[in-house]
Amino acid sequence: MMLVAAAPALEIPLSGALSQGGAATGSAPKGTASLTLDGKSVPVAADGRFLIAFDRDAGPDARLVARLADGRTVERAIKVAPRDWRIERINAPLRPVKSSEAFLDLRRPELARIAAARGKVTDAAGWRQTFIWPRQGRISGLFGSQRIYQGQPGAYHGGVDVAGATGDPVVAPADGVVILAADKPFTLEGHLLMVDHGMGLNSAFLHLSRIDVKEGDHVSQGQVIGAIGATGRATGPHLHWGMKWNDARIDPMLVAGAMAAG
């Protein structure tokens, strides 16, 4: 009697930070026609590689589903590890900020430009790389930190701040395409530069003193793209580096790893 070896079970391997604010890359099973994370489409490259990430406030469970061309499905349950955020409790009420019509007249088109930039799809492949820090320096603000005012949460910090001096160069953390380069300072972000790394992943660099690239430029990892400043709403010169994957705000420190000493 001839024994027939059973076909190997299909899997969806992942590598990266499976946690709140984290990102991971993976390989879709051969023959995958579509991939979803919690019902939302995830693009898959020609070689089967893909990227997923989890918002700062992501729940504890997520599910990847690959639908194969032959009709089969392959699923992977993901446990999203919680994070301990730096929370400061303030014994005072949260005072809502009332924006003037003049401010809103300036702010609405800025928000529209940011949304339009994040909606752009480019051929960038930086998402495949090991990211580097755009600037070496003291971490002066952590992603996810938040103040609670008498039980009412304020907005959390959506990026990592790196202290520096005005004019210190900022480099591209990975290859990408410039999707926004503010020709004049935005009201809050100041000179704002945004770079798409592909697969829905993008970086935003705030408060720059200058921008050295223009929209549509392809930039390479390590290339100087601007300089630290204090433009917009900033109390002093520093780099604010924010990252998003689609609608999820993620922690650049988990993407770039610990900053090298020196």
Rank of each mutant, 00 (worst) to 15 (best):
M2G: 05
V4D: 00
A5T: 10
G16H: 13
Q20K: 11
G21T: 06
G21M: 10
A24D: 10
S27G: 00
A33C: 00
L35I: 01
L37K: 01
S41F: 09
I52P: 01
D55G: 09
R56D: 02
A58P: 07
D70F: 13
R72E: 13
I78C: 08
I78D: 04
A81Y: 08
W85P: 00
R89H: 13
L94C: 09
V97H: 15
A102N: 03
G126V: 06
Q129A: 15
W133I: 06
L142W: 12
F143E: 00
G144E: 07
R147D: 12
Q150L: 15
G159S: 08
D161K: 11
T166P: 06
A172D: 10
A174Y: 11
V178Y: 11
A181W: 13
P185M: 08
T187K: 09
H191C: 04
L192F: 14
L193F: 07
M194R: 03
H197I: 10
G198N: 03
G198D: 11
G198R: 05
F205E: 05
F205Q: 05
L208H: 04
K214H: 13
Q221P: 11
V224L: 01
H238V: 05
M243L: 15
M243K: 02
N246W: 13
N246I: 08
I250Q: 10
D251G: 09
M253N: 02
M253K: 06
